[in-house]
């Protein structure tokens, strides 16, 4: 083989490579985008979970928003107070801690307490189930139990007990993914220190609720009488006003619908907790159509 061939080849390919390399080097120099070093530092501080709980596209996006656009510094829920303090230090701001919020499923109608009206055999997905004749639960507001929320939960905090979703507050990272996933809008973010919830979302009148579920709010206003402003009514549904503490905890036992529950800060609101007096036999037997497929 002629030595010239080798020289030409290496020269040409080397030349192409050199040209490309030079072009890249020049481009890197002249087209460089000045990135704020603080953005990078902020990105380091954030947990990098990219959960989107802050409302931005991811940790990098939030870092940019905090540094450049002056976004609120207390939006990173998974990071908690540690990250908040680091961000505050980096930005020279006071750390104004916002209490951690955890997801709570506002329904306790499990397969024993809330009967199903038909047998749903389709795709095991709540949105799909809700689209077929308004869902297979007799209660048109209740948890369908097909696990759409558990599937989007990045931390595995949602468990299904007897066909109803339960969030474990200590595992919850406050990203609100489940809130967006639930087709029935049953999941709410509530301050973690608040332990008394109204675990019903049915807006129906009392008799209809009673037929559909054993642990439903019948709109009797008992909680308003006993605990005052800590509850408020929306139509026939009592809602917990989390700004005001519940002073009279008797309401948990007195609630005729048994839908007001108290659970410890690290304890999930389990359907068991809805019956503080287990000796009391349930007056309405569950209907026989409860072979829901979950």
């Amino acid at each position: 083989m002629d030595i010239n061939n080798i020289l030409i080849t290496s020269g040409a390919i080397g030349g192409v490579g050199l040209t490309c390399g030079t072009a890249l080097a020049l481009a890197a120099k002249f087209l460089a985008v000045k990135e704020d070093p603080r953005v990078e530092a902020m990105d380091e501080i954030l947990p990098g979970a990219n959960c989107g709980g802050c409302g931005f596209a991811g940790c990098a996006d939030y870092a940019k928003a905090v540094v450049l656009d002056g976004a609120a510094i207390n939006l990173c829920a998974p990071g908690g107070n540690e990250v908040l303090e680091l961000i505050a230090e980096a930005m020279g701001q006071e750390a104004s801690a916002e209490e951690k919020r955890v997801a709570v499923v506002m329904c306790a109608g499990d397969s024993e307490k809330a009967p199903r009206k038909h047998l749903y055999n389709g795709v095991a997905d709540c949105t799909a189930a809700a689209a077929v004749a308004g869902g297979d639960k007799l209660c048109k507001y209740g948890c369908l139990g097909y696990g759409s929320c558990a599937r989007v939960c990045p931390s595995g905090a949602i468990e299904f007990k007897n066909g109803v979703a339960i969030v474990h507050p200590d595992l919850c990272i406050s990203c609100s993914a489940c809130v967006r996933a639930c087709p029935r809008n049953l999941i709410k973010m509530v301050p973690v220190s608040k332990t008394i919830h109204v675990v019903c979302s049915s807006k129906d009148k009392g008799p209809i609720v009673k037929k559909a579920c054993q642990v439903g709010c019948i709109g009797c206003r008992m909680c308003l009488k006993l605990a005052g402003d800590a509850f408020e009514m929306e139509g026939f549904l009592a809602l917990r006003n989390y700004d005001i503490p519940v002073e009279n905890e008797l309401i948990v036992e007195k609630c005729p619908g048994k839908c007001i529950v108290k659970c410890g800060a690290s304890e999930a609101p389990s359907p068991e907790a809805t019956e503080p007096t287990p000796s009391e036999p349930s007056t309405e037997p569950a209907e026989a159509t409860t072979e829901g497929q979950t």
């Binding site: 490309c20 390399g21 072009a23 890249l24 481009a27 890197a28 087209l31 460089a32 985008v33």
Partner: peptide
């Protein structure tokens, strides 16, 4: 190199 170049140029 072309893809890299496009990446840099597009960023700018």
């Amino acid at each position: 190199s072309f893809v890299q170049l496009v990446d840099i140029a597009m960023k700018k």
